[in-house]
């Protein structure tokens, strides 16, 4: 018998295997092509783009478009580059992700380990919030933010994203904690641990995978959100709104190389999060579905 054991469900021959790899490679290239175009065109002078082949490698390599996109490009009326908006995005995303994840974890903990009358109805309603389209809440949300004095500010955006995110994060944590043995919580209760001590000392240390899922999901959604940013951002608009202003400006020459650089800058944080934590994402989404 073969000494090499492969962890696959289906046994495949050499020819099938080659075929699979070729197909996968073609798909990978297909998906990487747009990214290749963006990167290549963001490091060449504008003249090379307007006068030649979009697919060609640059004759003159330059980081000038990146510098311009970051700090001097005309965004709207001000020549500030994307930098201040990037900062707005960071200041919005970090607290929004942190708060919605913590609240989701607490909700999941309460909904599975401190059951009360009507808890499944409550969970159902929270789940329902995942399916409400953004557009529906625009006007009521604008009114509420106005009443709270948070309109057009970063805290206002944080609130909106936390409210929208809690449905998802609660779903993740509830399902994860549902598989967590209740006897552990009971043992900790007898040991004298309180509500938060059980959460902090017993539940959170084993919640790594689901925290990663929640953070990636929330980070991607909030960072990439355009509608709320452009509606409620006011003077502190996030990166996505600024990128739109940069790319869609109708005056002057279209500086494609700067636009490409700006677009990559806008996508970079989510890319990094995926690359760093992506494998935990899949693992976390599968957690609890299979025993062991």
């Amino acid at each position: 018998m073969s000494a090499v054991t492969q962890d696959t469900a289906v046994r495949t021959g050499r020819i099938t295997r080659t075929f699979i790899y070729v197909v996968l490679l073609v798909f990978a290239l297909f998906y990487l092509l747009p990214f290749f175009v963006m990167v290549v065109n963001s490091v060449k002078p504008l003249s090379e783009i307007t006068g030649g082949n979009m697919m060609a490698l640059p004759q003159v390599w330059t980081l000038e478009p990146w510098r311009q996109a970051w700090s001097t490009a005309q965004v709207g009326v001000e020549p500030t580059g994307l930098r201040p908006y990037f900062m707005n995005s960071v200041m919005m995303v970090v607290p929004a992700v942190a708060i919605s994840t913590v609240v989701g974890a607490l909700n999941g903990y309460v909904l599975t380990k401190w059951r009360f009358r009507g808890d499944s109805i409550l969970f159902g309603l929270m789940l329902f919030s995942c399916f409400i389209p953004f557009q529906i809440v625009l006007i009521p949300m604008a009114r509420l933010l106005g009443l709270m004095g948070l309109a057009g500010s970063v805290p206002g955006l944080i609130l909106v994203h936390v409210v929208y995110g809690i449905g998802f994060t609660t779903l993740y944590f509830r399902n994860y904690y549902a598989a967590f043995p209740t006897e552990l919580v009971r043992a900790a209760m007898i040991d004298g641990a309180g509500f938060f001590q059980i959460f902090w000392r017993i539940m959170l240390p084993v919640s790594g995978p689901i925290i990663v899922v929640s953070v990636i999901w929330q980070f991607t959604n909030i960072w990439n959100d355009f509608l709320f940013g452009v509606s409620f951002g006011g003077t502190s608009q996030p990166m996505t709104a600024a990128l739109n202003n940069l790319v869609n400006s109708s005056t002057g020459v279209k500086e494609y190389n700067v636009h490409f650089a700006g677009a990559i800058l806008a996508a970079l944080p989510t890319l990094i999060v995926y690359i760093v934590a992506g494998r935990y994402f899949v693992r976390g989404l599968m957690a609890g579905s299979v025993k062991g």
Binding site: P181, E183, L184, A187, A188, M189, I190, R201
Partner: peptide, 20 residues
């Protein structure tokens, strides 16, 4: 009285050891 204040200790069927 709260479980922790009854001065009892319990051994569970699944042992319920804290995995972390």
């Amino acid at each position: 009285v709260h479980p922790s204040k009854r001065n009892i200790a319990m051994v569970f069927q699944s042992y319920a050891l804290y995995p972390n």
